[in-house]
Simulated scan of single mutants.
Amino acid sequence: MRERPDRRDVMSATVLPLLLVAGEYDSVAPPERVFTVDKPNVTQAVIQGAGHMSMMEAPKELARMVEDMVEMVGKVFGLKQQKKYAEALWEIDDLLSKNFRLNTRLLNSLSVEDIIDMFRLSGGVEADKLQTVARLLQEEGGVYKDMGEADEALRRFMKSLHLYLYADLNGAQRSMLQLQDRVAELKDEVKGYRLPVKTEKILLSYEEKEGRFDEAENVLFRLLNQREITEEEGVSFYERLLEREDEALNQGGLPRSEVLEGMETLRRRINA
């Protein structure tokens, strides 16, 4: 880690909001080395008593975040029932500000890549914080849906789905916010709409990981038809499935005979 390239010039140049976090007793990246950028868009935070693995050493911070989230979801649900939409949006914005020093307007102006970059730390991603942001976006989308603003809701649902999937592929605790249930809800919300290619690609990995091979194949062919992945990558997908037991393939909705058929179809396209 000590030999990683210095990225402070990137932090100095960006106008995105940054949260710089350091453990009080971190000898690898001590506070004086981390807090070298002082700009209006930069927030500095020291986790008292923690070293380099501050997220593992300070689990109470994560627990507080989850408690705040549960409380907010309950409040927003009640406010939506009362059609107090402005108050519901304020609750979401307040929690976003409290935990991440962000506001919903800024969050929705950023791309998913920019949001993910905000939660990169020491070469990794703070996946549980990322899924918390995804939950906030999902809640906000739900408010706009109830308000009848379908386009605003859809934008937030799509962004939330991408962040959940990315967080999951980077080690998020699934039980923290029932991530799999949230992904299923969002898939229903965006059904019938064309997802961004970057989201489709990680959805393909997610569906394969979950053992929903028929769903993964559907994503695969959407990407192939858009020429966003190659036939060779598709063949590799089927080759991975052939390593599975027949029972797993059947449960995943893609029997071995269909796997072989799909592979042969792509090989013919390659040789055409």
Rank of each mutant, 00 (worst) to 15 (best):
L223R: 08
K201G: 02
G192W: 08
L161N: 04
S12F: 05
N99R: 15
E24Y: 11
E189D: 11
V197F: 01
E232C: 00
A153Y: 09
E245A: 12
A13Q: 14
K129F: 09
Q81D: 12
G211A: 10
L179N: 05
L106C: 05
A248G: 01
T132F: 08
A172M: 09
E185G: 03
L223T: 10
P31C: 07
E208L: 12
S12Y: 06
G142F: 06
Y238V: 03
R240F: 02
F237C: 06
Q226V: 04
P40Q: 07
E264L: 11
G211W: 08
S236Q: 13
M1H: 12
R64A: 07
E126G: 01
E217I: 08
G192F: 08
G78A: 06
K145C: 03
E261W: 04
R174P: 00
E126D: 02
E233S: 13
A184I: 00
F77V: 09
N99V: 03
I115C: 09
E3M: 09
R155I: 04
Q226P: 00
I270D: 07
G124M: 09
R120K: 15
R227V: 04
E247I: 10
N41Q: 12
T199V: 05
A127K: 11
E91K: 13
R227Q: 15
E152V: 10
E189S: 13
M263F: 00
N99L: 15
D6T: 03
R267V: 08
L96S: 06
E24P: 11
R194P: 00
E228H: 05
A29T: 07
V183R: 00
E215C: 08
A29I: 02
D246F: 02
M263S: 07
V190I: 12
E245Q: 12
S97V: 00
L260R: 08
L106P: 00
E61R: 08
K187Y: 02
F100V: 06
D246T: 03
E232Y: 04
D128C: 10
E91R: 14
L169H: 10
D68T: 01
Q180V: 00
D114Y: 03
D188W: 00
L154H: 05
L107S: 11
L89T: 03
V197N: 01
D9C: 04
E3L: 12
V76C: 05
K159N: 08
K129Q: 12
N271Q: 14
V259F: 02
T43W: 06
K145W: 12
A13S: 14
L204Q: 07
L110T: 02
E232I: 02
A134G: 11
Q81R: 14
V235R: 02
S109K: 10
N250R: 13
L254E: 05
K84M: 13
D128M: 10
R105L: 13
L130G: 07
E126M: 12
M147G: 02
S175G: 15
K80M: 15
V219P: 11
A88N: 06
N103F: 09
P196Y: 00
E217V: 15
E207L: 13
P255Q: 06
E140W: 04
S109E: 15
Y193A: 06
Q173W: 08
A134N: 10
G171H: 11
